[in-house]
Each structure stands twice: as structure tokens, then as C-alpha cells.
């Protein structure tokens, strides 16, 4: 067990496909909802407490060893948009490839057999953390950080936003991320006793609706 594995897994350069996704930022930028760093902060805060919390709890639950097939079904039920379900599975498949090359183990091989076209990314993330010898809080932190760092880096490209401002947004959200991580881990602990129905089901309806519209655009920079 090494805690430094967390740095490898959380590194934005970990080759798991995230660079091609904006976490809904591209649609929000085009709709005029993100025009500056302050808007980005509001957008990321919304994601953190909705899609982020759900992803964090799923990842923590997978890291605790809950059945990934049940967790994947729970993720499906918590993702109304078919486009977002597809994106989550694609990203899950890409992450699983990188995970199996980095921390090869029977549990990840089994996941690949169950989900040849990919399981939901947070579920794969939790199992990856487990394979790397990390704990449920680490998995939750990774999922939560990704939920806000993706839109932040995408917005730098989409709006030519000052990269220092975008990083400042992430730094200001850090204390809140701590709180949401605690809630996610607590929910995962409850799910270990009561089943996946104990996992949070928060959602940002506009993220889901905009994701459907975005998936139909003929020209876009990001896959989601």
C-alpha cells in the first residue's frame, strides 16, 4: 500500500480519456452561462454538489468492495441522460485500460469481462483505487476533483480564460470539496450496510438536458 498512488491516479495526465470531455462546460459556455471565472466557479459548485457527490459516493462504494454490477446499475438509475450514460461508460472503459496496465489484478480483469464496453467511470475509478491499495476517501476525492477540474481545464480552452483564474477557482472550491467528500464516504458506508439505494441521487437537470443537446451538435470541441 502506498498513498502516493493517489497522486498517480488523480494526475490530470493519467491517460484515461478525460481530456476530451468538458463535464458540460462546452454546452454551458455556448449558452452564455459561463463567461468568466466567477461563472465557472458557480458551475463547478453546482456540479460538485450534484453529479460530483453521486460520482464520489459511487467511487467510494466501489472502493469499499460493493458489487460493481449493482453500483453500475445504480449509476445508470442516477444518470437520466442517455448521452451522459454513454460518455460515462466510454470513460469507464478508457480508465479501465489504464488501470489494468498500472495496477493489474484479478478484480479489474473481472470487471473488464463483465463490462466489455465499459462500466460507469466512477465505479471503475473506485475499483481502480482499491487495486492501487487506496481507500474509499481517496476514491471519493478523485471522483470529486475530476467533476470540477474537467470543466475548469475545458473552459480555459473554450473561453481562453486565464489559466491562473481557472486554477484559483479549483483552489477556492477545495474546502467545499472536503465536505462533499465526507458526505460521499458516509453514504458509501451506509450503502455497504443497506445496499446501493442508500447512495445519493442528486442531479443537475440542466446538465442532463444540455448534455442531450450537446451530443447532437454537428461541430464541437469536446465529446461531452
Amino acid at each position: 500500500m502506498t498513498h502516493a498512488a493517489l497522486l498517480v491516479l488523480a494526475d490530470g495526465r493519467f491517460p484515461a480519456g478525460g481530456h476530451a470531455h468538458s463535464g458540460g462546460a462546452e454546452a454551458a459556455v455556448k449558452a452564455g452561462r459561463i463567461t468568466c471565472a466567477a461563472d465557472l466557479e458557480d458551475f463547478c459548485r453546482g456540479r460538485l454538489h450534484t453529479a460530483g457527490l453521486v460520482a464520489g459516493a459511487l467511487a467510494a462504494a466501489a472502493a469499499l468492495g460493493l458489487d460493481p454490477r449493482e453500483l453500475d446499475a445504480a449509476a445508470d438509475a442516477r444518470t437520466p441522460s442517455p448521452a451522459l450514460r454513454l460518455a460515462a461508460r466510454r470513460l469507464g472503459r478508457q480508465l479501465l485500460r489504464a488501470a489494468r496496465a498500472s495496477w493489474p489484478c484479478a478484480e479489474l480483469d473481472e470487471l473488464a469481462r463483465w463490462f466489455p464496453k465499459g462500466a460507469h467511470q466512477p465505479v471503475v475509478l473506485g475499483l481502480t483505487a482499491r487495486a492501487a491499495g487506496l481507500g474509499a476517501p481517496d476514491a471519493a476525492y478523485c471522483a470529486l476533483y475530476e467533476s470540477v477540474s474537467g470543466p475548469a481545464t475545458a473552459t480555459v480552452r473554450l473561453l481562453s480564460l486565464d489559466p491562473f483564474d481557472a486554477t484559483g477557482v479549483l483552489a477556492r472550491l477545495a474546502p467545499e470539496l472536503d465536505e462533499v467528500a465526507r458526505a460521499a464516504v458516509e453514504a458509501a458506508g451506509a450503502a455497504a450496510g443497506e445496499g446501493p439505494q442508500a447512495l445519493p441521487a442528486a442531479s443537475g437537470p440542466l446538465l442532463e438536458i444540455m448534455a442531450e443537446a450537446h451530443a447532437a451538435w454537428p461541430a464541437r470541441l469536446f465529446a461531452s
Binding site: 480519456g17 481530456h19 466510454r90 478508457q94 485500460r97 465529446a223
Partner: peptide, 11 residues
């Protein structure tokens, strides 16, 4: 997509 993170192309 062709050098640093090739996962989407591999798929």
C-alpha cells in the same frame, strides 16, 4: 489523443 492519452483511439 494520438500520443499522450491514446485510449479513445485504441478503443
Amino acid at each position: 489523443a494520438i500520443r499522450d492519452d491514446i485510449s479513445a483511439n485504441l478503443e
